[in-house]
């Protein structure tokens, strides 16, 4: 059973700041970490391998320093790692990112399952996973909280929804995105870290993946950010008058009116 896990490097939210002028995330001078949701993906992939055999390949797209999160994946038990990196890919939106990652995954081939985190905590779109599946022409299930059963050609998963979950059977190969309820990512082992330190990270650029140079990076991305702003929060406060019992009565009727209760 071969699993591919997609990982992304993101700024550590403990240090992250927003540029007051451009309203974008300041990426310089902050520590980068592996997107927390991807950690659940790595863990799940490694668990599947440990139970069923096969291998886990971690794939990331990003600047060269993204190598760090691929090494972390290897320390946790991934066998191989691929970094898709090219200056031409800078500024890519989720569509271009999904296209590039799908091309890399296609090149790896021979996979049964692709796992992504539910979303990256910097962009919060949750689009890349499904985008990859579309490009590869395979089914996908988002927000998976549990894999109930898995075999070479199908799996049964629980998909988290607002107040409960759906049970979905899906043919493999497929892609899932996972939520944090699915597992508790392990702490890497010393041997894993030693292996990760020495591991050879395969790098691929746009040319290696035969990507159309006109459809890459910022200029190849249909998503255009027109303006970013922090929405103003309009809160109205109201002070109730009268004796406590009167106030309570007014409060209850107001709550009923607004359908809070």
């Amino acid at each position: 059973m071969n699993v591919i896990v997609c990982v992304k490097q993101v700024p550590d939210p403990a240090e992250a700041k927003i540029d007051k002028e451009t309203k974008t995330i300041v990426r310089e001078g902050v520590t980068n970490i592996t997107n927390p949701f991807d950690m659940y993906g790595i863990e799940e992939g490694v668990r599947i391998k440990e139970k069923n055999g096969g291998k886990v390949t971690a794939v990331s797209m990003g600047p060269p320093q993204s190598e760090k999160c691929l090494r972390e994946a290897i320390a946790m038990g991934a066998d191989e790692a691929i970094l898709v990196s090219d200056r031409a890919l800078a500024g890519s939106d989720t569509l271009v990112t999904a296209t590039a990652l799908a091309a890399a995954i296609d090149k790896v081939g021979d996979y049964h399952l692709i796992i992504c985190g539910r979303e990256a905590i910097d962009g919060d779109t949750g689009q890349t996973g499904p985008g990859i599946a579309e490009r590869l022409g395979i089914p996908h299930v988002t927000y998976v909280q549990k894999i109930r059963e898995i075999s070479e050609d199908k799996m049964i998963v629980e998909r988290m929804i607002e107040d409960g979950y759906q049970v979905i059977e899906v043919k493999l190969p497929a892609l899932i995105t996972v939520v944090k309820d699915i597992n508790e990512p392990r702490i890497p082992s010393l041997r894993g870290m030693m292996k990760a330190k020495k591991a050879n990270i395969i790098t691929m650029n746009a040319q290696d993946l035969s990507l159309d140079p006109d459809n890459l990076g910022l200029k190849g991305s249909p998503t255009q950010v027109i303006r970013q702003f922090t929405p103003e929060i309009v809160r109205k406060g109201e002070v109730l008058e009268g004796e406590p019992t009167e106030q309570a009565a007014v409060l209850v009727s107001k709550l009923l009116q607004t359908r809070v209760v």
Partner: peptide, 18 residues
């Protein structure tokens, strides 16, 4: 050494998280 730092950082992570 690099290995000793690795050991220390791993122990530190476990101490903090677990």
């Amino acid at each position: 050494t690099e290995e000793q730092e690795m050991i220390r950082d791993l122990a530190r992570k476990i101490a903090k998280e677990k």
